[in-house]
């Protein structure tokens, strides 16, 4: 294992994608206690929408990008309203099954509309590299990392400094009291799903060039995002983002070791996940959540 700066930056770039998906998972989990298995597939679906705008329709990349993010936002909000709200107060198993159903559904829809062949999707960033600290760092890595970070920071700002963000935190903290403040919990939760889906779509668009766009693109990512979210204790947004970056870098480094390779790094991730869960179930950042009887 050599601490190669190039490897680390490329790990950070893909790690920011993991972090984005993990952030979406955490946003939904901490406000509703729901693990959204469809987070990755919804991102893939939205990425295809972006791909259609850019490649099929021929729009400028960033216009297509914005439209895809917007579409994802609406998609997330609608999914919450139509599929999640009816089962919100059902047992945990029921809700997980619904999100698994959504996982299947979006995978199937991507397959239906865009087929299984890999779609080349060019990166919006220049192809060259920049010379820093004695190594070359590709613009693509810098671009993925930068845009992801901006999108995640945007989510942070919405939560921290806007009235809607305040309402979101209120619903998370005490849904009954928030309803008594005149907050429409349903609308806020829809908004939360929309936001998560939008962040996911950004991650998908950024990763599409690197991971190759096909209907199953996000399934591996989902595992890393789970690990990242678990590192963040499932409830810490910052923890999830850092967890994603950690997963990205370790993964890049571990994969570079010749006898491990990229196949086994997935298994290594799994082992890391189990170890974290065993040693610190509340995650490295999270707090212990009380079990409701």
């Amino acid at each position: 294992m050599h601490l190669d700066l190039q490897l680390i930056t490329s790990g950070l770039a893909i790690g920011s994608v993991y972090g984005s998906i993990a952030l979406g998972l955490v946003l939904i989990y901490r406000s509703t206690g729901i693990l959204n298995f469809a987070q990755g597939e919804m991102a893939t679906f939205s990425t295809y929408i972006g791909w259609s705008f850019v490649v099929s329709v021929g729009m400028p990349y960033w216009v297509g990008f914005l439209l895809a993010v917007l579409a994802a936002f609406l998609l997330g909000a609608v999914v919450e309203r139509v599929a999640i709200r009816p089962v919100q107060n059902q047992p945990h198993l029921t809700v997980v099954i619904v999100t698994l159903g959504l996982f299947l559904l979006f995978n199937a829809l991507s397959l239906k509309f865009w087929h299984s062949d890999v779609r080349p999707f060019r990166s919006p960033f220049p192809s060259g590299s920049v010379h820093v600290l004695g190594t070359y760092i590709s613009w693509v890595s810098i671009g993925i990392f930068g845009v992801s970070l901006i999108s995640m920071a945007f989510v942070g700002i919405v939560f921290r400094f806007t009235k809607v963000g305040l309402a979101m935190r209120a619903v998370t903290s005490n849904p009954m009291a928030s309803a008594l403040m005149g907050i429409s919990n349903g609308r806020i939760l829809s908004l939360g799903w929309g936001l998560s889906a939008a962040v996911g779509a950004i991650a998908g668009m950024l990763a599409a060039n690197r991971l190759l766009l096909d209907p199953n693109m996000m399934q591996g990512v989902l595992l890393y995002a789970f690990a990242a979210a678990v590192i963040g204790g499932m409830t810490s947004p910052v923890g999830a983002v850092i967890g994603g970056l950690v997963m990205g870098v370790t993964n890049a480094l571990v994969s570079s070791v010749s006898w491990i390779g990229s196949d086994l790094s997935l298994a290594a991730t799994f082992i890391v996940l189990v170890l974290i869960l065993l040693v610190r179930p509340q995650g490295l950042f999270g707090r212990q959540i009380e079990v409701r009887v």
């Binding site: 009235k163 305040l166 309402a167 935190r169 209120a170 903290s173 005490n174 009954m176 009291a177 928030s178 008594l180 403040m181 005149g182 907050i183």
Partner: peptide, 17 residues
């Protein structure tokens, strides 16, 4: 039923949501 994790000030702001 306070919003436990939020500040007193934020609790009051939510009252005026």
């Amino acid at each position: 039923e306070v919003f436990a994790g939020l500040s007193v000030y934020d609790n009051l702001r939510l009252g005026a949501y």
